[in-house]
Amino acid sequence: MPQQRGEPLLETAVRYAEERHWDVFPGTWLETAGGVQRCSCGDPVCAAPGAHPAHGDWATRATGSATAVRRMWQERPTASILLPTGRTFDAMSVPETTGFLALARMERMGAALGPVILTPERRMQFFVLPGACVKVPGLLRRLGWSSASLDLVPLGEGAYVAAPPTRYGSRGAVQWACRPTPANRWLPDVEELISPLAYACGRDR
């Protein structure tokens, strides 16, 4: 699903639901007041301006229905696009430098990759099959690492990721490091990626 530059958020959100069968929900958005961009949540020191849930019940609002998604963005065309983890995918979040090191290693290994997000907060999020959160601690122990020793954060049930082209205030937009394509529709299990991710995290400490 190639990303079109300047494509409306509504159309992008609908394509995520229709083509990838991902649940989607609208988050906050950016507002300009006095020439200054602020998050619609009203917090002047918001940690993720324009890129976090707008409602506490966001998990129940998330839907894979293209009709419902279209209706939600018609009501708020500038809302960020957020994807709940723990449903059709989990995500492994690592620092950006770690992520690029891991990507290079995975390419040499010929590892199968799913989509990978690059955030303005300089994090990379690797999409894997659901259930990664449960498996990661044991997998790391087998590799000789503890979860606390590496900046490797599994995002599963109860968490979410901001999807391209969502903007984080003045920091820039979320981007794809590896875009969703027909070739990566079938996601890897975290067991297939944990070794290069842990190795890269250990090197980047």
Rank of each mutant, 00 (worst) to 15 (best):
A33W: 08
V153F: 09
P77H: 02
A102W: 07
L9E: 06
M124C: 07
W73K: 13
G172S: 02
Y16L: 04
M109P: 14
H21P: 00
Y168E: 14
R105T: 12
E121V: 10
Y160K: 05
F25I: 00
G144S: 06
R105F: 13
W145S: 04
R171F: 13
L139E: 05
D204R: 10
E75W: 08
Y168S: 07
V190C: 08
P26M: 08
A198R: 11
A200C: 05
G50W: 11
V69G: 03
E31C: 09
S80E: 08
R179W: 12
P8T: 05
C41T: 01
A104T: 15
Q125Y: 06
I117K: 01
T78H: 11
V190I: 05
T28K: 05
L129W: 13
V94R: 05
G144T: 06
P130Q: 12
V174L: 12
V134D: 06
E11M: 06
P137Y: 05
G64V: 11
A17E: 10
D189M: 08
A17W: 11
V94P: 07
L83G: 02
L30S: 07
G110F: 03
G35I: 13
G42I: 03
A111W: 11
T85E: 00
Q4M: 08
V174T: 14
Q3E: 14
A112T: 09
L113K: 02
R87L: 04
P77G: 03
L193V: 01
T97Y: 07
R179V: 11
F89Q: 15
P26F: 15
L82P: 12
V116T: 12
P115E: 08
T67P: 05
F89V: 07
P196E: 04
W29D: 01
T60G: 15
G114D: 02
A183Y: 04
V14N: 00
G86D: 06
G42C: 01
E31S: 12
S195T: 11
A54H: 15
G56V: 12
I194L: 02
S80H: 09
R87E: 08
C133L: 14
D90Y: 04
R38D: 01
